[in-house]
Design a protein around this nucleic acid. Structure first.
Length: 322
DNA sequence: TGAAAATACCGCCAGC
DNA sequence: CAGCTGGCGGTATTTT
């Protein structure tokens, strides 16, 4: 039996607790092989209100006797709620203590600020909501904020980007505990379209959203993904049926990027997946992703992710070995 | 590492 | 006329 302690405070984001809570709860309820006890706790231990006005009952944090096998997950909340929570010395101290005891400690969305405050993110690679990345990097310079990840596992510390990605992260924990088959069945039960690995960027989600919105660019992106090996800006324009100039404008207004950057991102994304799921040589991965040489791939990775391909492989291959 | 060559970016503008 | 398109070309960035 794994205990999951969801840490709450007034003004938390409803989905940040409900998502992971249901993921673990579903696993426990439907999978004979899996067993979780999910508890909600807050500093005051009362009924607290979430962002949308739901009242949820919480146990008192201090009453929790921490065990080495526990998992602690801190929810995100509104700016105001986070600010108040950061000032809650008891809460921060409890988290700091938990960090030294439990097997896994993590956050969803802006909950990362509380872990940062407790000193748990120093020297770690972490994820948070895209709109909060810069603020977190400034708030705690010792934390290495990965702007692309939807969730990151760095040793015992797990962080996720925001709301629904908390579910992806919870499922990765289920996989860690009970294997992929069970995690996949839970995902199916929750009717998740596809389970996303942590390295899949928030940027991809934006692209996916465009696709579903029926935006012409969405279809172009899908096409482009299949032709990475012979793609440059004029070619992309041709696929899109637009002039270079107009394609440029569309990319700016819909995706906040430029055509060449878009192509580069798609290439990096593709290569990144291959790096972490196969043992193929960097050179062959570079070639398949449309980089003429390994050197060019390395430079693109540095620009897009601030990391070298080799580092990506090292960081993510451990996860897959488990 | 450095410099030349290639490619991309984007303000501007005429044309639809 | 407003609003969108796409060509031009100087500057910036990336590649070789």
């Amino acid at each position: 039996m794994h205990r999951i302690i969801l840490v709450a405070y007034p003004g938390i984001q409803t989905l940040d607790v409900a998502g992971p809570g249901e993921a673990f709860g579903t696993a426990s309820r439907l999978e004979p092989g899996a067993s979780y006890a999910v508890v909600l706790a807050s500093s005051a231990g009362k009924t607290i209100e979430t962002t949308c006005g739901f009242g949820i009952r919480t146990a008192r944090l201090e009453r929790m006797r921490l065990r080495a096998g526990d998992t602690v997950l801190v929810s995100g909340g509104s700016d105001e709620a986070i600010r108040r929570a950061l000032a809650d010395a008891k809460l921060v101290a409890w988290l700091a203590r938990a960090g030294g005891i439990v097997r896994r400690i993590g956050s969803v969305c802006s909950g990362a600020f509380l872990l940062a405050r407790a000193g748990l993110l120093d020297g770690r690679r972490v994820a948070t909501h895209w709109a909060a990345c810069e603020t977190l990097a400034r708030y705690r310079p010792a934390a290495r904020v990965d702007r692309n990840a939807i969730f990151v596992r760095d040793g015992t510390v797990w962080t996720s980007a925001g709301v629904t990605t908390g579910i992806d992260m919870a499922l990765a924990m289920v996989e860690d505990d009970y294997g992929q088959a069970i995690a996949d069945r839970v995902a199916a039960q929750l009717v998740l379209y596809a389970r996303r690995p942590g390295f899949q960027s928030q940027f991809s989600d934006a692209l996916l959203a465009q696709t579903q919105a029926g935006d012409p660019l969405g279809a172009i992106i899908a096409r482009a993904r299949t032709e990475l090996r012979s793609l440059d800006v004029p070619r992309l324009a041709k696929l899109a049926g637009l002039s270079g100039r107009t394609l440029h404008r569309r990319c700016r207004e819909h995706l906040g990027t430029t055509p060449a950057k878009l192509v580069e991102r798609l290439r990096v994304e593709h290569a990144r997946t291959l790096l972490s799921t196969t043992a193929r040589s960097l050179k062959s991965i570079a070639h398949e992703s449309g980089f003429s040489t390994g050197e060019r791939m390395r430079r693109a990775f540095q620009r897009e992710l601030g990391m070298r391909p080799r580092e990506i492989r090292l960081l993510f291959s451990a996860r897959h070995a488990a």
